[in-house]
Simulated scan of single mutants.
Amino acid sequence: MRNARFGIGQLVRHRLFNYRGVVVDVDPRFMLSEAWYQQVAKSRPPKEAPWYRVLVHNAVHETYVAERNLEADPGGEPVNHPELGQYFEAFSGGRYRATRRSN
């Protein structure tokens, strides 16, 4: 396994579907079911590379995306998503800052 290219709070763009979003979680490898992979991951991205949960801009859903299908979003504009407040407390310098959680 290699290091993830993107981090939590980073703005990304999907290379194939051209939507923007913000990373809310990073898995070091594919962590969903084989059935999901067969049905949804049509381009068959590698399972052993990082995968990301992304809140999609101007939508109410999130996606699970292989690293090879993402690129950094150069625009630096905030994302509009109803669940942003569950993950982040601020947006500054083109990046979201994660909410501090108490144990």
Rank of each mutant, 00 (worst) to 15 (best):
D27V: 05
Q38Y: 11
T63D: 14
L84M: 05
P28F: 15
A90H: 01
P82Q: 03
A90R: 11
G76W: 13
N18K: 09
Y19Q: 00
V79F: 13
E83V: 07
P45R: 03
Y96Q: 08
N18M: 07
F91G: 07
Y37V: 10
P78W: 09
R44P: 03
A35H: 12
R15I: 08
R15N: 11
V60E: 00
Q39W: 09
V24N: 08
G21D: 08
E67Y: 01
G94L: 06
E67P: 02
H61V: 05
T63E: 14
E34M: 13
E77I: 01
A66N: 02
A4N: 10
R20H: 09
T63G: 11
P28V: 15
M31E: 14
K47R: 14
R44N: 13
A72P: 07
P50R: 06
P82G: 02
F30C: 13
Y52K: 02
V54M: 11
V24R: 12
R20N: 06
Q38I: 08
A98S: 14
V56W: 08
R95D: 07
R29C: 13
Y52S: 01
V54K: 05
T99G: 00
F17D: 12
R5C: 04
V26G: 03
F6H: 04
S92H: 05
V54Q: 06
V23R: 03
V54T: 09
D25A: 14
Y64L: 12
N80T: 10
R97W: 00
A4H: 04
L70K: 03
D25E: 12
R101N: 06
G9E: 07
H81I: 05
W51N: 03
K47H: 04
K42T: 08
N69S: 05
G7M: 11
L32G: 03
T99Y: 00
P50Q: 09
R5N: 03
W51H: 05
V54E: 09
Y96G: 10
A35R: 12
M31A: 15
P74H: 08
V24E: 12
E83R: 01
Y19H: 13
D27K: 10
E48K: 07
E89W: 00
Q38P: 03
D25R: 15
E62S: 15
Y52F: 14
V24M: 13
E83K: 07
A49H: 07
P46W: 07
Q38N: 13
F91T: 00
G93S: 06
E48N: 11
V24K: 07
P45A: 09
N69R: 01
N18G: 00
D73E: 09
P28Y: 15
V79Y: 14
V22W: 00
R101G: 04
Y52P: 05
H14D: 11
A35P: 04
G93K: 09
V60L: 00
V56T: 10
V22L: 01
G94K: 02
V12T: 04
E89A: 05
M31V: 14
E34Y: 03
L16M: 00
Y87H: 14
A59D: 12
V26I: 13
V22Q: 01
V12S: 03
L55A: 08
Y64W: 12
V24F: 15
H81L: 05
F17R: 13
L70T: 02
F6N: 01
V60T: 08
W51D: 03
K47T: 13
A59Q: 10
V65D: 11
H61Y: 14
A49Q: 12
E71G: 02
D73N: 10
V24W: 15
R53E: 14
V56S: 06
G21V: 08
A49Y: 05
L32E: 07
